[in-house]
Structures are given as C-alpha cells and as structure tokens.
Simulated scan of single mutants.
Amino acid sequence: MNKVFSDTGNVLLGLDHPEDNTLASPAQFAEYTVILITEGEGIFHADFASFPFTSPVILFSTPQQSIYIKETKPVKYVMLQFHSDFYCIEYHRNEVACNGLLFNNIYIEPSLKLSQGELDSYLQLIRQINDEFKQPDPSDIVLRAYLQLFLAKSSSIKIKSIEKQKVFKDEKMDLFKQLLEENFLTLHKPSDYASLLAMTPNNFTKQCTRRFNKTPSQLIQERLILEAKKQLHLTRLSIKEIAFALKFQDEYYFSRVFKKMTKISPQTFRNTTGISIVADLSI
C-alpha cells in the first residue's frame, strides 16, 4: 500500500490494491475511504445499513464507519483513503461539493455506478497517483490535486445520476425528510413522525424503507449521530457542550449512545479524525 504519513506517523493518504477482499469482515478507519470496485458484485455494509452493488462502482465511507463487503461474485477493487488533515472536504466544499453528496448523507446510497468509459478514466487517475507515489519525493501538492480531481469527478457524476433517476414521487417521505431535519434533536420515536404525517406506524415504516432503504428508527438515530460527528469534527466544543447542544441529559449518556452506534467513544472519534481547520475559521 502506498502511503503518505504525517509528522506524528498518522496516515494522511493511502492507495491500496488488495489481492483479496480485505473488507470481508467489519473494519473501521480514521480516514475517508473510497472503494473503486472494478470486478464482481456483492453487498456493501456501512454501519447498520446495507447496499447491493454491481461493478463497476465506487463506494464511499466516512471516518470510523463500520464497513465490510459481502461478495456474491468475487470482487476486485482499489481502496483510496485520505485523512481530513490532508484534505478537508468541508474546507474545500466550494471547489468540490462532495460533503453531503458522496459523504455524510443518510438519505442516499453511498455509491456511484460507473460506465465503462468512466471506469477507464478513474483507472487512469489511479495510475497517475501510483506514479506520483513512486517518485523519490512524492509531492503532497500533486497528490492532493489528484485527490481533488477524483472527488470532483465523482461529485459531478453523482449529481448527474441523481438528476436522471426517475425516483417515484412520494410527498409523504419528502415531508418526513424535512420534518426529521427540523426535529431530530427533540423527536426520537418513529411514532412521533408517523403522527405528524397522519400515517399508521406500519405504513410509515414500509414507505420509509422502500424510499430510503432504511427504517425510520435507523434514519432518526443516524441523523442524530451525524450531527454529533459534525460537532466533534468541525468545532472545538467540549464533549459536555456537544451533549448539551444535542439535548442529552449529560455527557455520560451521550457517550453511551454514541458508542453504541459507532463502537467508539466521542473522544476517540475526535482524537482519530482530528478537528477540522473549519473549527477555527469563525474565531
């Protein structure tokens, strides 16, 4: 695996061509993980959700997600990983609108289906990254530029694919998404939203699962944890302050809920993912 390390020994950028499916069992990484599947098919598991895929496709994962790939046909892939200290997707959101599109979006699948031509262009880009790694003194600037191109290209294709998709119109689920964004801090039960939508709990669950491939409970929990991750990564608020902002009774209960959902504590998440440069921009 080709890697760029920080002065403290942490991986900033990594590119791997595993011979076997190294993600056959659950794994968690401190880095953003991009998996370019060139052959095979299977099911991509990310935390408590699962998404079937057929190559060629790109899969995306945020730091400390528990991910693994269950093959239905043998897969081959390239794994590109980057730490936010190397490339902050929030800081560069004007150049590459991938935050909330490729990463950190609980409502859409974390995947990007590719045409053969698109796959070829990605493989060419991977070769260029490999070539730079082989230089006596690989340039961070060049590698960062290739990574930005990779993400920008992915965002462009993703936006076009969303626009072309003929998703069945479901005003109730569109409204649920809006209600969840407005009330995730205070309404934590599926029945709360079912009542607001004037739906029976069973019908609500069925429509939600059909639309988002997740149950209402999954979405409600994921939205709260997503906000917690944002606060841990994008601010310098203490754990206690974040717990209060998210309306937990105290930081200990917050830590228990966070660890139950992510398998790590809030402090460990912050330590491994780091605090974004964005946290200091408003100071």
Rank of each mutant, 00 (worst) to 15 (best):
residue 1 M to F: 05
residue 2 N to P: 00
residue 6 S to D: 11
residue 9 G to T: 03
residue 13 L to G: 01
residue 13 L to K: 02
residue 15 L to T: 01
residue 15 L to I: 06
residue 18 P to Q: 09
residue 19 E to G: 11
residue 20 D to A: 15
residue 22 T to M: 07
residue 25 S to V: 12
residue 26 P to S: 07
residue 30 A to I: 01
residue 31 E to K: 03
residue 32 Y to R: 09
residue 32 Y to T: 00
residue 39 E to R: 13
residue 43 I to H: 03
residue 52 P to S: 03
residue 54 T to Y: 07
residue 55 S to N: 07
residue 55 S to H: 09
residue 57 V to F: 01
residue 58 I to W: 00
residue 58 I to D: 01
residue 60 F to C: 03
residue 61 S to T: 03
residue 62 T to N: 10
residue 63 P to L: 10
residue 63 P to C: 07
residue 64 Q to Y: 14
residue 64 Q to D: 09
residue 65 Q to V: 03
residue 69 I to D: 02
residue 69 I to S: 02
residue 70 K to R: 11
residue 73 K to R: 14
residue 75 V to A: 12
residue 75 V to I: 15
residue 76 K to N: 15
residue 79 M to P: 00
residue 89 I to D: 01
residue 91 Y to R: 08
residue 92 H to Q: 12
residue 94 N to E: 13
residue 95 E to V: 05
residue 95 E to I: 07
residue 95 E to G: 03
residue 95 E to Y: 08
residue 96 V to P: 00
residue 96 V to F: 00
residue 96 V to R: 00
residue 100 G to S: 06
residue 100 G to K: 08
residue 102 L to T: 06
residue 106 I to D: 08
residue 108 I to C: 02
residue 110 P to F: 00
residue 112 L to N: 02
residue 116 Q to E: 14
residue 116 Q to M: 11
residue 117 G to H: 11
residue 125 L to K: 07
residue 127 R to P: 01
residue 129 I to A: 04
residue 131 D to F: 07
residue 134 K to T: 10
residue 134 K to F: 01
residue 135 Q to T: 11
residue 135 Q to F: 01
residue 136 P to E: 02
residue 141 I to A: 11
residue 143 L to K: 00
residue 146 Y to M: 05
residue 147 L to K: 01
residue 148 Q to R: 07
residue 148 Q to F: 04
residue 149 L to T: 11
residue 152 A to V: 03
residue 152 A to C: 06
residue 156 S to H: 10
residue 162 I to R: 13
residue 162 I to T: 10
residue 170 D to A: 10
residue 172 K to I: 06
residue 175 L to N: 08
residue 177 K to E: 14
residue 179 L to N: 10
residue 180 L to S: 08
residue 181 E to Y: 13
residue 182 E to L: 12
residue 188 H to W: 11
residue 189 K to E: 13
residue 190 P to L: 01
residue 192 D to A: 08
residue 192 D to C: 07
residue 198 A to S: 14
residue 198 A to I: 06
residue 200 T to S: 15
residue 201 P to K: 00
residue 204 F to T: 05
residue 204 F to D: 02
residue 205 T to C: 08
residue 214 K to Y: 06
residue 218 Q to V: 12
residue 220 I to G: 06
residue 221 Q to I: 10
residue 222 E to F: 04
residue 226 L to H: 12
residue 226 L to E: 13
residue 227 E to Y: 09
residue 228 A to N: 06
residue 234 L to W: 10
residue 235 T to W: 04
residue 239 I to P: 03
residue 239 I to N: 13
residue 241 E to I: 04
residue 242 I to E: 01
residue 243 A to Y: 04
residue 243 A to K: 02
residue 244 F to C: 03
residue 247 K to V: 09
residue 249 Q to T: 15
residue 253 Y to I: 15
residue 253 Y to N: 12
residue 258 F to A: 06
residue 258 F to I: 05
residue 258 F to P: 08
residue 260 K to H: 13
residue 260 K to N: 14
residue 260 K to E: 14
residue 265 S to D: 14
residue 266 P to H: 05
residue 270 R to D: 13
residue 270 R to K: 15
residue 270 R to E: 13
residue 273 T to R: 05
residue 275 I to V: 15
residue 279 A to R: 04
